[in-house]
């Protein structure tokens, strides 16, 4: 844990407004990115962002340094608040659901072949395919590939176990492949 983190945690525990401001400057953009991945509307994302930090400032006493880093703890609160907001709003989200299990039938070789081409077209196809994924799967693959979080950290954020996260990642890759094939056809 860095000195900045220690200073911020101590200041938040004392409910210092100055340190709260510093925490917002330090972690604000990161939390915003976490929230806006799941809650696409800007107005809704602003509301959820505020709820996240109000919860962080109010529940700082519950933070345990031994379980996770402060950043990961923030990610967990942001993820849970976003998912709760989506459930509460009951917004209709259209995404690909592999009810027939065709994605699972794909082999690893097929997936590598579909996703492995190093061209811009493949990247655009993957971007389009990601938008068809459910919000929680989008968040997981973003945390893994973009934020470069470990399986243990992702499991802590999503309140699951690392093996569940690993199997979900594998299924999501295959799903991306399936969506790309659908888009190409």
């Amino acid at each position: 844990m860095t000195e900045t983190e220690i200073h911020i945690i101590e200041g938040l525990r004392q409910q210092s407004p100055k340190v709260q401001q510093e925490a917002l400057e330090q972690y604000g953009n990161y939390v915003w990115a976490q929230v806006v991945r799941l809650v696409t509307s800007v107005e809704d994302a602003e509301e959820v962002y505020q709820d996240v930090f109000v919860k962080v400032f109010g529940n700082i006493k519950m933070y345990d340094e031994e379980r996770s880093s402060f950043r990961t703890w923030l990610s967990r609160i942001a993820y849970n608040e976003s998912i709760t907001f989506l459930r509460r709003k009951r917004q209709a989200i259209i995404y690909f659901e592999d009810n027939e299990g065709q994605a699972d039938a794909l082999s690893e070789a097929e997936v590598e072949e579909t996703l492995g081409h190093g061209n811009e077209e493949t990247v655009q196809l993957i971007r389009a395919a990601i938008r068809h994924l459910p919000p929680d799967e989008q968040a997981i693959i973003t945390m893994f590939y973009y934020d470069e979080m470990s399986l243990k950290e992702i499991a802590y954020v999503t309140e699951t176990i690392p093996t569940t996260v690993a199997s979900k990642l594998s299924r999501t890759r295959k799903k991306l492949c399936k969506i790309i094939k659908m888009l190409q056809s």
Partner: peptide
């Protein structure tokens, strides 16, 4: 490719409003 795609997606996300932290405080 997945990383690049995600990177591009993240770049295209809407930015955080400038006064959001002030309103939060």
């Amino acid at each position: 490719n997945i990383r690049n795609a995600l990177h591009q997606e993240e770049q295209n996300r809407p930015p955080m409003p400038a006064d959001l932290n002030a309103r939060l405080m």
